[in-house]
Design a protein around this nucleic acid. Structure first.
Lengths: 352, 352
DNA sequence: CTGAAAGCGCTTACAG
DNA sequence: CTGAAAGCGCTTACAG
């Protein structure tokens, strides 16, 4: 007769109703250990009558293994972040774990959240926002949890990172522009110090440099459509001699805003070719028809899942101790790069 | 020396290092009970050295109160659903609970997920997808958990539902069209039997009927931009006498696709006025400038939070038993309707 | 096939 | 201020 959660029955209550020991109730639900089919039926019936089902917390405690995975995420703004989370939730659901979400309002919070996540003794943690400090990464790995970083470094040799090959995307964009004979290159970058956008910009710049060209970079704190529009205005104000003829936007939001800002002032792709990154749904809409890169979400998820499985946390809660270096299907690669896929539309590249 | 989770220390290990009883370790971390400041310091240091922090599962078990809230969600497709989840995660984080997510691939799964959710003995469950069966709703409430349904019925007198006032939105849209002298009305509806879209359509139809007009309805299974485009084609194929002069799309995705489909064939709003629903970011983009309704997300969250607080699950884990009918600030209203806000842009309404 | 008992890792009265 | 003990709700050897 505990005072809190008065409505909640326990396995003892069920045992009483079914006229069996409490242990049998447990067996009826776990399927472990012998139990007569008819007893089991009786117990199931009693449980339903009482409205009871095993307490997952208690189960996790006693088995020493909670079917949880911590997911660090942040604001789901207009962005491919929602797609990632959606796909991630689905995958986690499919392998019968429960995602415990940690929402970081800013990158600074991520470390604290990671610490909190640890206290739930989850199977592991998937980081889709912010930065993983090396200490923290080590603490997670030491506890036997897996650590997966999406589109960011894992900062630990036993951590795992799946990322789009951002530099390659940049190089491909530059390559396409060069092939078309474009010479005056501009990239719409992200904030200083950002990971993915900077790598995209660098890949682009490098390829340009190798062709003996220089790519200007305009950094943007927000990477929003507004930022893209602002860049368009800035471009329109440039003297004719400095006008770029090819622009690589390190994300689609900026590219779309940029297109809107240029509308009526420049002919695309004749005056200016444009390539974005992300392949947002809007990139395919008639007013935009943006040539852009699709991030290989499905492949990334496959790799992620493969890693987690190898780690020993297979579908049905395998053991957690895998000391021996058995990295079979995923041979020791801790940083997986997945190739972005160029989607050619109107704003750059030959349209078929 | 348990075999599993070998890396994980317990409070006993910390006690040993700090040379105190295990109970004191607990006190050092909970802050409950007397403890000498210097002992506390010593324990904290020992814990850090050992790399230990309280096991949240164990704590939840013994206190009989897990700081969890179950959230039922589904595919985060291009949609306001991501916004809702984002805002929800933030709110849950702010009141120091952890969201345990349940991802429903289809509405049919929702009931099963709800059952699973129950096993975690969470404070409550927030449903943002699918339908809550009455039985299940009752089971949840009986267990002392709160039940909040977002934009759908809670199906229980003690459940709580926050929704946009969808019929009102429909009425407002119709009102605006009528005021402009439009007479040939069409609504782009959702799937048969959908909740929110149907209510929007009904509100619209009713208002039209009251004005002695009939509104045609075209149902759409997908409510996507593609569906909107298809509707545009269908409209263009209509004989001139049946051409509508005002269209109410029950979501923005369809409205945007519809605009794209009409582009070059009809003049908006001269030939056809259009109103959407959701106020997606793209509704404000130059090629669209869609008049639409903003769903009052912030207000909905405020009401939701107020309900949960009243329910007794305040910020820092208050007691769960609140039998007395103390519905102070939220006087007994179980279904809260929040007014949608008309955002007037180019496609309908007088622009200032 | 079934039951009594130990134990998971904590928190919290209850004594000192 | 501190410690020994009981107990949270289960699962799982271990005996019968």
């Amino acid at each position: 007769m505990s005072r809190r959660k008065s409505g909640t029955a326990t396995s003892h209550d069920v045992a009483r109703v079914a006229n069996v020991s409490q242990a049998l109730v447990s067996r009826a639900f776990t399927g472990n250990g012998r139990i007569a089919p008819e007893t089991r039926e009786r117990i199931l019936k009693a449980a339903e009558q009482v409205g009871w089902q095993p307490n997952a917390l208690a189960r996790s405690m006693v088995t020493g293994d909670a079917p949880l995975v911590a997911v660090i995420t942040t604001r789901l703004n207009f962005d491919w972040r929602a797609q990632v989370l959606s796909r991630l939730l689905k995958a986690i659901q499919e392998w019968h774990l429960k995602p415990l979400l940690f929402y970081a309002e800013s990158d600074a919070e991520v470390d604290r959240l990671l610490e909190e996540a640890l206290s739930w003794r989850a199977r592991g943690v998937i980081v889709t926002a912010g930065v993983v400090r090396e200490n923290r990464a080590a603490a997670i790995i030491e506890k036997g949890q897996f650590l997966v970083a999406l589109n960011r470094p894992a900062n630990h040799e036993k951590g795992f990172s799946v990322a789009t090959d951002n530099p390659l995307g940049g190089r491909m964009a530059a390559g396409l522009f060069l092939e078309e004979g474009r010479r005056r290159l501009l990239v719409l970058g992200g904030p200083q110090g950002s990971w993915a956008p900077s790598l995209r910009a660098e890949g682009f710049s490098e390829a340009a440099r190798e062709a003996g060209l220089h790519a200007a970079i305009w950094n943007n704190d927000a990477m929003s459509t507004e930022a893209g529009r602002a860049c368009a205005e800035r471009l329109l104000a440039l003297p004719g001699s400095e006008q770029p003829d090819a622009v690589f936007a390190t994300n689609d939001a900026m590219a779309l805003g940029f297109l809107d800002g240029l509308r009526g002032h420049r002919s695309i792709p004749d005056d200016i070719a444009l390539i974005g990154f992300d392949n947002l749904p809007a990139a395919d809409w008639p007013p935009y028809r943006l040539t852009t890169f699709e991030q290989p979400l499905e492949e990334m998820m496959r790799r992620l899942i493969a890693h987690v499985d190898v780690h020993g946390d297979g579908h049905l809660g395998g053991q957690t101790d895998d000391q021996q270096p058995q990295e079979e299907s995923e041979p020791r690669a801790r940083l997986i790069h997945c190739k972005p896929k160029l989607i050619t539309r109107m704003t750059a590249g030959k349209t078929e």
